[in-house]
Simulated scan of single mutants.
Amino acid sequence: MTQKIVAAACRIAQGSTGQLYLGNMQIQRDWGWAPEYVEAMYLMLQQSQPNDYVIATGESSSLEDFLAAAFALVDLDWRHHVVIDDSLLQPTDLAVGRGNPAKAKNKLGWQAQYKMQDVVQMMVKARLAKSVQ
Score class of each variant (00 low, 15 high):
residue 27 I to T: 15
residue 102 A to Q: 14
residue 84 I to T: 10
residue 76 L to A: 04
residue 63 L to Q: 04
residue 6 V to Y: 00
residue 74 V to K: 03
residue 85 D to I: 13
residue 32 G to N: 12
residue 32 G to C: 07
residue 102 A to I: 07
residue 110 W to Q: 00
residue 68 A to K: 09
residue 16 S to T: 04
residue 2 T to H: 06
residue 59 E to M: 07
residue 67 L to E: 02
residue 96 V to M: 04
residue 81 H to L: 04
residue 62 S to C: 12
residue 107 K to Y: 13
residue 34 A to M: 15
residue 64 E to L: 15
residue 62 S to H: 05
residue 2 T to N: 13
residue 106 N to Y: 10
residue 3 Q to G: 15
residue 82 V to L: 09
residue 77 D to R: 09
residue 42 Y to N: 11
residue 115 K to E: 06
residue 119 V to F: 03
residue 9 A to I: 02
residue 44 M to P: 08
residue 15 G to M: 04
residue 48 S to T: 15
residue 100 N to L: 06
residue 114 Y to P: 00
residue 118 D to R: 11
residue 121 Q to T: 06
residue 32 G to K: 03
residue 83 V to Y: 10
residue 21 Y to V: 07
residue 99 G to L: 10
residue 16 S to C: 08
residue 119 V to D: 00
residue 75 D to I: 03
residue 3 Q to M: 08
residue 11 R to W: 08
residue 41 M to F: 11
residue 104 A to P: 08
residue 79 R to I: 05
residue 47 Q to S: 05
residue 65 D to K: 10
residue 116 M to Q: 07
residue 122 M to S: 02
residue 125 K to N: 04
residue 66 F to M: 14
residue 22 L to D: 01
residue 6 V to K: 01
residue 98 R to S: 12
residue 74 V to G: 04
residue 82 V to K: 03
residue 29 R to K: 14
residue 81 H to M: 03
residue 125 K to G: 00
residue 19 Q to T: 14
residue 95 A to E: 09
residue 85 D to Q: 13
residue 47 Q to I: 08
residue 37 Y to L: 10
residue 108 L to Q: 14
residue 44 M to A: 14
residue 89 L to P: 05
residue 20 L to S: 01
residue 100 N to I: 06
residue 83 V to M: 10
residue 37 Y to E: 13
residue 72 A to W: 01
residue 4 K to E: 13
residue 8 A to R: 01
residue 82 V to A: 08
residue 79 R to Q: 15
residue 94 L to K: 15
residue 114 Y to R: 08
residue 120 V to S: 00
residue 128 L to N: 02
residue 56 A to H: 07
residue 95 A to W: 07
residue 73 L to C: 09
residue 115 K to P: 00
residue 87 S to A: 14
residue 126 A to F: 01
residue 52 D to G: 12
residue 71 F to E: 00
residue 27 I to C: 14
residue 15 G to Q: 04
residue 64 E to V: 12
residue 81 H to A: 01
residue 122 M to K: 14
residue 36 E to I: 11
residue 124 V to L: 02
residue 42 Y to H: 10
residue 63 L to Y: 04
residue 79 R to V: 05
residue 60 S to M: 08
residue 61 S to V: 14
residue 126 A to N: 02
residue 36 E to H: 10
residue 89 L to I: 14
residue 21 Y to E: 15
residue 98 R to M: 13
residue 103 K to E: 09
residue 102 A to G: 06
residue 17 T to L: 07
residue 17 T to M: 07
residue 103 K to H: 09
residue 73 L to V: 09
residue 83 V to H: 13
residue 31 W to I: 15
residue 109 G to I: 11
residue 97 G to I: 09
residue 121 Q to S: 12
residue 103 K to M: 08
residue 24 N to Y: 04
residue 42 Y to L: 15
residue 78 W to C: 02
residue 96 V to F: 01
residue 56 A to E: 07
residue 5 I to G: 04
residue 108 L to A: 10
residue 47 Q to F: 06
residue 62 S to A: 12
